[in-house]
Nucleic acid binder design. Structure first.
Lengths: 255, 255
DNA sequence: AGGTGCTTTTGATCTGCATCAAAACCTCGC
DNA sequence: GCGAGGTTTTGATGCAGATCAAAAGCACCT
């Protein structure tokens, strides 16, 4: 079984290629354009999007992109980095509602009330493209493909949330963690990274909060998966050794 | 303790006033237009919406409005009645993802994949307005207020889902039920019905599925609330006697 | 290099909800 | 009015995951 050292492969795990420094946003140059808002647009249309997405914003690890209550003005496309979103109850309890990576859109929760309803925090040094929302609406009244794709992005968020509700409502601890790992693996694959091997940007506590579990339970589930030989865990470094039993865990509850 | 019969008040609980029979949709005539898609539009703009929302559909209790996998063509505005949406896992487990009432929009989950991802079932005889989606996109490219309001409606769905995730991830059984009852009460109020007294359209099992609990736990929580004098329960008829302790249940976890 | 604080792991025990079971109740068709 | 099927309530017991506790590992600072 392939537990050999990962020496040569780490390179594409932490570093997202092509980290352009210039703050002139340029969807047309961006390697994420097939994942992100420009998807399906013609070159000409992307050029118009370029002009609108005027600025970028860099965030250090731990910095907030926005906080619950902040006035809503823009949505954000993640260019590089990794984020979490969380909501807070008055009594201090909080819940991580999602983890977002390159090419994904943040901030759509703010449209309804013209203020953000959750916090978005960078889990590593990150860079986002700022998309002023009124301008996006303006442009999507002119570019049908942009309008349609934006609707799909919002709808995808709703579908994703339903998946999390399913997870929180019906799954047991190990099923939740399996679903979480498979989901990450899937998303890394889409971005051209290894599906088997990746680095978790979040703590066990944050994973637990997202999955509706305590951090100790998350840790135990990781240990269990490792004992069973499904994965290898070294702190935040995860390697999926055998994906089948993880998938099977989701396929039938009674196991 | 006032558990006396509610004889004189039932009238506005089950029957939604103004049940027009003609199948010519007419947002301009609809008493829900301040809640539903036409919100914020001028009379002229509503008239254009009227022309687009060509048809209505009636459903008997138990009938599906759409099923997971059905091709996506339209979204639906609930004119009268009550729905649930649920998702199914291959192994048979399912999760109710929401309950929808008059003025709310169903079907936005289908936009992303051009197919519905959940089932929508009428919990009582209902009527919906069919809004062909491509036409809606077309019209909202022309009517800025319609576009913006539709985005708000989608965003509201995302925010609602985050609330449910919070509930499922961090709350205990009685807190979940309290949140559920307060949410229903709030929505009935918005629609001009009594906030204190209403009729549940769903079974204990459906409530349980939505709240991530078993039906027995839901039943026990109802009984507990009744013992404490917060509410009176007679089957599906609920009367909120003292709203404060329900709210308090949500305010601080340690109780 | 050593120290401080954070994160993770692991163990022991506790508990809220699930599960199993049965009775009561409500609805509807005949 | 009676019987069948579905829904709800209530009780007894079991268990998954929470909680409490402590040690080990790791990262970052001086």
């Amino acid at each position: 079984m392939q537990i050999k050292s990962t020496s040569g492969h780490d390179v594409n795990l932490n570093v997202i290629p092509l980290n352009i420094t210039s703050l002139k946003a340029a969807c047309s140059q961006c390697n994420l354009r097939e994942l992100c808002l420009p998807f399906g647009l013609t070159e000409k249309e992307i050029a118009r999007l370029d002009r609108m997405v005027a600025s970028r914003r860099r965030l250090k690890r731990g910095q907030h992109l926005y906080r619950a209550g902040d006035p809503f003005e823009a949505i954000y496309a993640i260019k590089t980095g990794f984020f979490k979103t969380d909501v807070l109850l008055e009594d201090g309890r909080d819940q991580v509602t999602g983890f977002q990576m390159a090419g994904e859109i943040l901030g759509m929760d703010g449209i309804s009330a013209e203020a953000h309803t959750c916090n978005a925090v960078a889990l590593e040094d990150s860079e986002v493209c700022v998309i002023p929302f009124l301008q996006l609406e303006g442009l999507s009244r002119e570019i049908e493909a942009l309008q349609h794709h934006f609707h799909k992005v919002m709808s995808r968020e709703i579908v994703r949330d339903h998946g999390v509700m399913m997870l929180l409502g019906t799954m047991r601890a190990e099923e939740r963690l399996a679903a979480f790992l498979l989901n990450l693996s899937q998303r890394f694959t889409t971005r051209g990274y290894s599906p088997q091997e990746f680095h978790l940007r979040m703590t066990r506590e944050e994973i637990g909060s997202y999955l509706g579990l305590k951090l100790e339970t998350v840790s135990r589930a990781f240990s269990r998966f490792q004992e069973e030989g499904f994965i290898s865990v070294q702190q935040k470094h995860i390697r999926i050794l055998d994906i089948a039993p993880l998938k099977q865990l989701l396929a039938h509850s009674s196991a």
